[in-house]
């Protein structure tokens, strides 16, 4: 009965649920890229740190990740802030390649450190919410934790958007993005704004990790696949556009889900990167972005 309607609908819903988490990860990456023109290869490692932090707090206190995710955000904000101040600021102005190598190296160190401390073994957590499913009609079902993650991710995405478009900090960040040479002449403390932007971007990765933990599992290299996806989102969304990356995240989730539904799961990842290459070569300003000078 009405299968032609319900099956794709369920596919789209699944895609949106996953896509909201992608969106949050991608927005963090886009903020950093937009303000600093830095491709942060440690973004996946920051997500992994957020997951481990949440895991440790959960094991110690038993508080559900859905209540304690701000902790991961705060922790990763400071990690990001310190990374900028301690590592990235000294090499600002050098070739971009140095930044890529540096963040890549940082990602390796963080991943291996996690392996040293927690072992290569994977971990998962069990909360009662996991076994709750919400049924809408006879055909549609939604797993409660995914829905909660979706809600939190969407609220945070809106908050991030508000911060970037409406606050003094956001205006300063956008000014730097538009013209990093004119911005300090206008009285903007570039270092401070960039450090905060890097912190916020990292915090978004950390919170995404916290929200991902209940529905996924955790091992030191978990961040890699999300790092690759966040590159795709930044490009699709238009090189540093935050709202673009958010929409790209949702689109990516739905595209993966529908590809998986109609072509098979083994094609889902391929389609991601086909999109990536097509957009880069045909419309480098991104599907949702306008070309910036």
């Amino acid at each position: 009965m009405l299968n032609w309607f319900y099956i794709p609908l369920q596919g789209i819903l699944n895609g949106l649920l996953t896509g909201a988490l992608y969106a949050l990860i991608g927005m963090g990456m886009a903020l950093i890229f937009g303000v600093m023109r830095i491709v942060n290869f440690a973004h996946g490692a920051f997500l992994m740190m957020g997951m481990y932090a949440t895991y440790v707090v959960f094991q110690a206190t038993g508080v559900s990740p859905y209540y304690q995710f701000p902790l991961a955000g705060v922790l990763l904000f400071f990690v990001g802030y310190a990374t900028y101040m301690g590592l990235l600021r000294p090499i600002r102005g050098q070739v971009d390649f140095m930044v890529i190598l540096l963040t890549m190296g940082l990602a390796l160190i963080l991943t291996d450190a996690a392996q040293l401390v927690f072992g290569a073994d994977y971990h998962q957590i069990n909360i009662p919410l996991l076994s709750k499913n919400i049924h809408i009609g006879p055909q549609i079902s939604i797993n409660a934790p995914w829905l909660v993650s979706f809600g939190i991710a969407m609220v945070l995405a809106c908050a991030l958007y508000w911060v970037v478009t409406q606050t003094m900090f956001g205006r300063a960040a956008r000014a730097i993005a538009q013209n990093p040479y004119a911005a300090p002449l206008m009285g903007i403390n570039v270092n401070r704004v960039q450090a905060i932007a890097f912190g916020i971007g990292s915090a978004a990765a950390g919170i995404s990790g916290a929200l991902l933990l209940p529905v996924f599992y955790l091992f030191p290299e978990v961040g890699n696949q999300f790092k690759l996806k966040s590159f795709v989102m930044v490009v699709l969304g238009g090189m540093g556009s935050i709202q673009g990356a958010a929409i790209a995240g949702l689109v990516l989730g739905v595209v993966e889900s529908l590809t998986s539904l109609y072509w098979g799961n083994e094609w889902a990842l391929a389609v991601d990167f086909v999109l990536f290459i097509l957009v880069l070569s045909l419309k480098p300003s991104g599907i949702f972005g306008s070309q910036r000078a």
Binding site: S257, L258, N265
Partner: peptide
Amino acid sequence: TEAYQASSPDYKSLLQRVKG
């Protein structure tokens, strides 16, 4: 017959195909 990419967080679409 369904092949899948290992270590994904989401196999719901794949399972939905099977269910169909």
